[in-house]
């Protein structure tokens, strides 16, 4: 590998341009650039390992398949429990994918570099969570109506199901990322994440499944969706800071 020797020679012959001039007093802008590059990078990574991306979706479909077998194939029985079932299964599927959110970056040292960026860590972490939602939460929400058909979910509630899951899974990703960040430094963090995160998921489940139930019974769903939206706003405001703090703890003690 001779590249370096060559550059050394060329540098030695013309030792102009000092590094002194490189010292910057204000970090350059480029926050948008950093966020965009992180988005592109994380999307590319997920698209290169499509299997990993499909796993939560397959899990979702499998769990939903278990219930008619375990309970009863009768449409009436299934329709009664469908809203809750769909929501619980989607929630578990989203949970399943959490552990990989930061683990890859932690294991190969990229997380360390992310923490050393002059840009605000909460925003960069939020970017990663956004990718997680785009690649898991959103597909789960889009797939849910399909599984709803299999559970004889009454018509008229399909749009609400997808919308409530899309909104709700964003909260799940944000809150779950705190748990993932807290356990990323632990060798066996997988089960622990569920223990930390599931209790915090309960309000989302209540209002998400409640919205679908309300749609089934013909009640007004706006209240449920509005509360989900409010929870999302709170999570968007607070979770990035908790995630950033947790990442620092996991990496540096």
């Amino acid at each position: 590998m001779s590249g370096w020797e060559m550059i050394d020679v060329s540098v030695n012959t013309k030792p102009t341009g000092t590094v002194e001039s490189l010292l910057v007093s204000e970090p350059e802008g480029g926050l948008i650039g950093a966020i965009k590059a992180t988005l592109v990078r994380d999307m590319t990574l997920l698209l290169r390992r499509r299997g990993e991306m499909l796993n939560p979706l397959v899990f979702f479909a499998l769990v939903i398949t278990l219930f008619p077998i375990g309970i009863s194939p009768e449409a009436e029985t299934l329709a009664a429990i469908a809203p809750g079932l769909l929501w619980v299964a989607a929630l578990l599927a989203a949970l399943l994918s959490l552990d990989s959110l930061f683990r890859g970056d932690h294991d190969d040292g990229a997380l360390e570099q992310l923490l050393l960026s002059p840009h605000p860590l909460p925003l960069l972490a939020l970017t990663k969570v956004a990718v997680h939602w785009l690649m898991t939460g959103l597909p789960l929400a889009l797939m849910a109506p399909l599984l709803g058909v299999m559970l004889a979910l009454p018509s008229g509630s399909y749009v609400v199901l997808a919308v409530s899951l899309a909104l709700g899974s964003a909260i799940l990703s944000l809150v779950g990322a705190i748990g993932a960040a807290l356990t990323v430094g632990l060798a066996r963090g997988g089960v622990l994440v569920s223990l930390l995160v599931l209790p915090l998921y309960i309000p989302v489940l209540i209002f998400g499944a409640g919205a679908v139930q309300a749609a089934v019974s013909g009640a007004n769903v706006a209240a449920h969706l509005a509360i989900l939206g409010a929870l999302l706003a709170v999570a968007l405001g607070l979770a990035p800071f908790a995630i950033a703090a947790s990442l620092r703890i996991s990496l540096n003690g």
Partner: peptide, 17 residues
């Protein structure tokens, strides 16, 4: 941080990229 490059134990190189 804007003036720093840090190289840690792990190279920070993504295998899939």
């Amino acid at each position: 941080l804007a003036n720093l490059i840090y190289l840690g134990h792990a190279p920070g190189v993504k295998a899939a990229l």
